[in-house]
Amino acid sequence: MNRQKRRTGRRHPLATVALLAIGLVFTGGAYAALSAGTTAQAETDTTSQQTIDEGKKLFQANCATCHGLSAQGTDNGPSLIGVGAAAVDFQVGTGRMPMQMQGPQAQEKPVQFTDEQVKQLAYYVASLGPGPDIPSDHLVNGGGDAASGAELFRINCAMCHNVAGAGGALTEGKFAPPLTDVSGVHIYEAMVTGPQNMPVFNDLNISPEDKRDIITYLKYVQDNASPGGFELGSLGPVAEGLFIWIFGLGAIVAITVWITAKSN
């Protein structure tokens, strides 16, 4: 069929009309989506009190055991007054909270709530006291300067998270997690809130634009496979040494056995 069409070599008169229609649908759709976005934004503003109330219910059902009924903190969990929406979005949005058990540090788990519920919780906690907000999209979409981000990452982050974001060990069984599949929003929120034992990097230490650069670099590392081939976990010389002993020398020893075995 295709071949036949090509042989005629002429565009159907309706093609232009179809193209126009498609174009209109796309631009219209995009416009609709955009305006829907803005209206959605407006909706959150207007319905924020409702969101907060929903969040409060969720909080009291799921978090109050450790953090107290009004998030004032207990012996089992810190006060959440003033930690901001960013902290909640990070802790709950990565599954670290609610915690499964007390341990050296909260582990990443499958997320317990829907995105909407996470937002409700976040805005409830944010309503208790001023704190860092969830960052806007332009800061976390990876549109910054990767080179500047890489330099900042090496100075501020690599000693715990490894230069390639592969993670690393801390004291007494704690560890800095790998950043290889963490979303930009969560990286940003971690920097501003300092979850677990991570220090806080406020906007006067690393400016929002610098944070965007750091996320851009991490996105670059996530999106671009290593030019040299498989990365062996980006763990550096330990992985390389184990590889050459087990697979390199292992394969070669198998070959020596073949070379010296009597041919059959």
Binding site: M159, C160, L170, T171, A176, P199
Partner: peptide
Amino acid sequence: CPVALYEQHTHHLLCPCHQSQ
């Protein structure tokens, strides 16, 4: 080595090269 692994709650600093704390 640069000792820069700071844990904000335990207030421990860790050296990543030879694990001095």
